[in-house]
Design a protein around this nucleic acid. Structure first.
Length: 558
RNA sequence: GGCGCCGUAGCCAAGUGGCUAAGGCAUCGGAUUGCAAAUCCGACAUCCCCGGUUCGAAUCCGGGCGGCGCCUCCA
């Protein structure tokens, strides 16, 4: 595992045997989440899944910073309380996490719920001489901490410090606030230094201590948090406790909008927005819920995991769509699995641990190959959670399974059922490995609202076919269409200006598709390829593909 | 200015001293198909440039060039 503190990869060792504590810096909830906020949660969700899979007992904490200058400003601006601002954005954050399949978090502490712990640490720091009170503020005395700067590799001289209005109250320019005196009208808490509220960094020292102890295993966050946030956390916690705070500091790379400099949601983007919003917010910051609606959570998760977590990721929507094209290979395979076995791939019983998933290859050539790919996959994950490399093995695995299916004609009705056994075992391994990444555990949610739009377009196609049939005096076909869609809850009315339709419900789309497929089969049986190809081509224009198989035709949305 | 990261095929991306440089997307052949789609098989990179270390470097070192981050709120 790579450690920002030592700047190299190190063997993984835990503080307590077989137990791992992970703390990830979550959001300051002054505004809606953007996709950049999801990188850390997604990767650490996989880290936890993998460690659990490897036999560790893992506790994962993601904090919520719900008291801060920007929250206060936002509350004043909107005329509501800071708590209301926080609640609203926490709900948004949780929705986004759920959509991306992040469900491994054990504790979600909030800064405002840990005031006693926060004040306790500050008191201890003052007692030990690492902090001082100044006009109701309390500052950490950076000059007293000989280790200061070890994480971000900075010297005190290089530090510019906060400056500004509070500079006069500080002994050293680089000193940072542990506690801030309350201004009129601000939310505040009682403390030994009067009414006030915590500074930015102290809440993480308090919450991690409360839930994971004074020394824990992994502390994560975005690369942009290394300085000052994590540097200051180390300073506070280690001066207070006199021992190391964290064994491994793990920082994920930042997302960058590819067509413009700067990270997503970063300064460049904000300035561009200030200058008249030339740069679209949809490039990344904001609109995460919309993006999830358009693309679906699994695509976004897969997109994020394709790249190693420490790399910068160039973010844009076509890139997510490309990742989705790759995912479709797996979804198609899952349908194929169902055709072969009659079982839903999501119902497979999947091994939960590394030991349980071990393959006893036996005489099967397929399983020997699956076992090798599994080893390569696990080797990649063992190397600093290399999800990008691991995903490559997943693609190899699905190809092997498809090939086996081809070679042994598993879709043929008179297949030898014994041949399906290694296929099922191999698919089980695919699901096992995917579950480490948190994908393919359940059917991917369809894009919101896409069905309604598609139904309208497909109805237009149906009506065109019927109109053409009527023009050709082919009333058998025309009536077959009307009789076929009636039971689906759709009514047709032929008027002078054309045919109007109305009605339809949730399952209508699939029914219409079945009707179209039947019409096409009839045309093909009659060697009327012009009609059958028209149906397929028109559907293709709408993003619907038809696949002819021995057992019938299947449709899917691309 | 200080601290740091990155530059592998048209695009995305693994690999960080030694088997034929993973994988995905796109493209082009072939098998299959009434034609397609899907699937399978195959094609597609001397790893930014220059020098050095080494029996051997995409991988280590030095120097360029180019891109990016942090140093102020940030995931």
């Amino acid at each position: 595992m790579y450690n920002t503190l030592t700047k190299r990869k190190e063997p993984f060792r835990t503080v307590a045997p077989n137990q791992v504590g992970i703390y990830l810096c979550g959001p300051t909830v002054y505004d809606k989440a953007h996709i950049g906020h999801m990188v850390g949660p997604v990767i650490f969700d996989c880290v936890k899944r993998y460690l659990v899979y490897c036999g560790y007992k893992v506790t994962w904490v993601v904090n919520i910073t719900d008291v801060d200058d920007k929250l206060i400003a936002k509350a004043n601006e909107r005329g509501i309380s800071m708590l209301e601002v926080a609640e609203e954005n926490i709900a948004d954050y949780n929705d986004n996490l759920a959509a991306l399949g992040v469900d491994q978090i054990d504790h979600f502490p909030r800064a405002t719920e840990c005031m006693n712990e926060i004040i306790g640490i500050i008191e201890s720091l003052i007692e030990q001489g690492y902090a001082y009170e100044s006009e109701g503020d309390v500052y950490f005395d950076v000059g007293k901490d000989s280790d200061y700067g070890k994480l971000s590799n900075r010297t005190l001289e290089a530090m510019q410090g906060e400056g500004g209005g509070t500079a006069a109250r500080k002994r050293g320019l680089a000193d940072f606030a542990l506690w801030k005196v309350a201004k009129a009208g601000e939310p505040s808490w009682e403390s030994p230094w009067g009414q006030g509220r915590p500074g930015w960094h102290i809440e993480c020292s308090a919450m991690s201590k409360k839930l994971l102890g004074e020394t824990f295993d992994i502390h994560g966050g975005g690369l942009d948090l290394v300085f000052p946030h994590h540097e200051n956390e180390i300073a506070q916690s280690e001066c207070c406790h006199g021992k190391p705070m964290v064994t491994y500091w793990a920082h994920n790379g930042l997302l960058r909008a590819s067509s413009a400099a700067g990270k997503v949601g970063g300064r460049g983007e904000r300035e561009a927005a200030d200058e008249g919003g030339k740069m679209s917010r949809s490039k990344g910051a904001g609109g995460l819920a919309d993006l999830i609606g358009r693309q679906g959570g699994e695509r976004i998760r897969f997109f994020l995991l394709r790249t190693h977590y420490r790399s910068t990721v160039l973010f844009n929507e076509p890139a997510i769509e490309e990742a989705g094209t790759g995912l479709d290979t797996f979804y198609r395979f899952f349908k194929r699995y169902e055709r072969v076995t009659g079982q839903n791939v999501y119902d497979l019983e999947v091994p939960k641990t590394r030991a349980a998933g071990e393959i006893v290859a036996g005489p099967s050539e397929l399983l020997a190959e699956v076992a090798e790919l599994r080893n390569k996959y696990l080797k990649a994950m063992d190397d600093d959670f290399n999800t990008g490399g691991a995903i490559g093995e997943l693609f190899e695995l699905v190809r092997k399974l498809n090939k086996y299916c081809d070679d042994h004609e598993l879709e043929s009705p008179n297949k030898q059922s014994a041949k399906a056994e290694p296929f099922i075992r191999g698919t089980t391994t695919l699901r096992e490995l995917a579950s480490i990444l948190g994908i393919f555990s359940k059917p991917a949610a369809a894009a919101r609202g896409a069905d309604d739009q598609l139904l309208g377009q497909i109805m237009q196609l149906v009506l065109d076919l019927r109109t053409e049939a009527r023009a050709n005096k082919n009333f058998a076909t025309a009536d077959a269409i009307r009789d076929g869609i009636g039971p689906l809850g759709i009514t047709l009315e032929d008027r002078a200006g054309g045919t109007e339709w109305s009605g339809g419900g949730d399952s209508t789309l699939d029914g219409i598709m079945q009707l179209l497929i039947e019409l096409r089969q009839t045309a093909r049986a009659n060697k009327d390829f012009a009609t059958s190809d028209t149906i397929r081509d028109r559907l293709a224009e709408l993003g619907v593909t038809l696949e002819d198989r021995p057992g019938g035709t299947e449709w899917s949305q691309g």
